[in-house]
């Protein structure tokens, strides 16, 4: 299920990342977004999602939220 459709404040495990660009994938990896890692949506604001990965908060847009499957 894409991250854009999951419930708030529940921790999920990343299943796959549906992005073609290798550098973006690598970048997400270095933040800790890769299959098997945990991810939580803290809030949804308009078209932005605030997520928690490891011990940091990030804001991502809807396109990226759709590309991350949990």
């Amino acid at each position: 299920m894409p991250l854009s459709e999951v419930k708030l404040n529940q921790t999920y495990t990343v299943d796959k990342i549906d992005i073609e660009r290798d550098d973006m994938k690598k970048f997400l990896f270095s933040l800790g977004v890769y299959p098997g890692e945990r991810i939580t949506i803290i809030s949804k604001l308009s078209s932005n999602y605030i997520i928690n990965i490891k011990d940091a908060r990030y804001s991502i847009d809807k396109d990226l939220a759709k590309a991350i499957h949990v």
Binding site: L28, L31, I60, D63
Partner: peptide, 9 residues
């Protein structure tokens, strides 16, 4: 083209 947006808060 558009890009994905991600920024640390």
């Amino acid at each position: 083209s558009t890009s994905y947006f991600i920024i640390e808060l």
